[in-house]
Design a binder for these strands. Sequence first.
DNA 1: GATAGTTGTAATCGGATGATTACTAGCTGG
DNA 2: CCAGCTAGTAATCATCCGATTACAACTATC
Lengths: 180, 180
Amino acid sequence: MSTVKSNQAGIADAGRRMSSDERREQIVEAAIAVFGAKGYVGTTTDDVARAASVSQPYVVRLFGTKENLFLAALDSALERLLAAFRSAPDGDDLHDRGELMGQAYLGLLEVRGLHQILSHAFLLGAHPVIGPAARAGFARVWHFLRDDAGYTSEEAQKFLAMGMLINTMVGLRMTGEYGK
Amino acid sequence: MSTVKSNQAGIADAGRRMSSDERREQIVEAAIAVFGAKGYVGTTTDDVARAASVSQPYVVRLFGTKENLFLAALDSALERLLAAFRSAPDGDDLHDRGELMGQAYLGLLEVRGLHQILSHAFLLGAHPVIGPAARAGFARVWHFLRDDAGYTSEEAQKFLAMGMLINTMVGLRMTGEYGK
DNA sequence: GATAGTTGTAATCGGATGATTACTAGCTGG
DNA sequence: CCAGCTAGTAATCATCCGATTACAACTATC
């Protein structure tokens, strides 16, 4: 029903030929959405390929393995998360900063799958490769809160806890009832 | 390496013939552990079968589908969770009750996979069958906190948030560093 | 405008997996 | 003690999926 060439009113012309770096970014974006929606095991490389309007073998070639693709998507998601937190200007007091970072976190809902790919990664602790990456990512966020945002351990813990509850609501698709 | 008959120092003699109800319970127990460790899609019915020392077709026969098996495991996990909360005696003030319920939640760590199968279920909101069940389960916990435990919305939210953070640490296998 | 490198796909393969079928072994009541 | 029911398995099937291979189309450079 859709040729590769046909650009079905999609975002950016996905059919055109582009540099492998451009394509990689595009695929990572799609991977965040699909991995977020269906999880690591539940996602096929073909799912991601179709979401990125690319053939399945090309996804595998650009990333080597599905595992590497997930790691790239996870890294991108974490990078965006920290960027959003950093861009929350530090107000006069910590409370304001917390509010702004919380809102920045909710703003990230527009990046489809971001919260959920993090949740999925955090459940893969037993995976030999993804597990360590997930722990490292979590530690990065933790140390950002402590060292850069200036939170105490207790504050950081509460902030993270609320974040995890938000992730849960997103995963449950109960975001509608939670318009604050 | 292991015959069905050989009872490799296991808990309870799994090799003996038992009623289908007994077997069902045993399989659900195994299912909580395996689904918790590897997720819904990542778990095979054969994984559960081997964990329960039973053949794979028998698991399918007793539960019909893998989906039903997961639903049974999720339900059992929720039942145990609420039972643990209920058994936390209501002290004089709410704060004590909260402490006790928190400890009860940590005590449930001895039920292998319980926290993680809940986390996994909470990420399956988009699943046509498991999604609604997961939302209903979450709602059950929420209403228990509000109606039975007497929490305000804000208190219930904070309690749940901390629970989700604990779940995250369990999923990440970072429980070692968190010995209170 | 040929040659070489890069982007991209079609075809295909082997292994895994949920489910079905057909069968065996053990229990129970008359 | 045998007839029927229940517990349980071995074998097998169709499907799916990640990865590989072989090939085609585009682009740049000399």
